[in-house]
């Protein structure tokens, strides 16, 4: 049996939306190089719609695939949709991830949330802090 599903391998081999957005409206970075994965998401937002999204990822195959899939799932959607994207939805869209790799989908969810938080901060939009991840909550890494 292969380590990853065909979908994971497809998104890993041909990642969608790789790159940066120079004049991004929101940027979110999560993870830690010490733990072996960092994801950075760039959002271009117009009228509450995610017009464009790009990512850069330092990490394993499933981290790259999770970022790619997550960007596909929020592109063209409303910021509310993006806020409610769960790691499970990312993993399911990839036809599943091995249990030890589920944290990659968590990182993708959190990277998007952090990019939205950055957007809210830049635009003075009020939000509930508790819906955003903080590094201390991350169960993946305890260095």
């Amino acid at each position: 049996m292969a380590l990853y599903s065909e979908k994971v391998m497809d998104h890993f081999r041909n990642p969608r939306n790789v790159g940066i957005i120079e004049d991004a409206d929101g940027v979110g970075e999560v993870g830690n190089a010490k733990c072996g994965d960092i994801m950075k998401i760039y959002l271009k937002i117009e009228n509450d719609i995610i017009k464009d999204v790009k990512f850069e990822t330092f990490g394993c195959g499933s981290a790259i695939a999770s970022s790619s899939m997550a960007t596909e799932l929020i592109k063209g959607r409303s910021i509310n949709d993006a806020m409610t994207l769960t790691n499970k939805a990312v993993a399911e869209a990839l036809d599943g991830l091995p249990p030890v790799k589920m944290h990659c989908s968590v990182l993708a969810e959190e990277a998007i949330k952090m990019a939205l938080k950055d957007y809210y901060d830049k635009n003075g939009i009020a939000y509930d802090c508790s819906v955003f991840p903080s590094c201390d909550d991350c169960s993946h890494c305890h260095h």
């Binding site: 391998m9 081999r13 072996g36 394993c60 981290a63």
Partner: peptide
């Protein structure tokens, strides 16, 4: 520097190269 080993192994495998890494993954 700047990359992770498992991703490297998967891409190398696509090119037919069988190798190993000491990454956490």
């Amino acid at each position: 520097e700047g990359i992770e080993g498992e991703a490297m192994l998967l891409l190398l495998d696509d090119m037919g190269v069988c190798a190993s890494s000491g990454s956490a993954c």
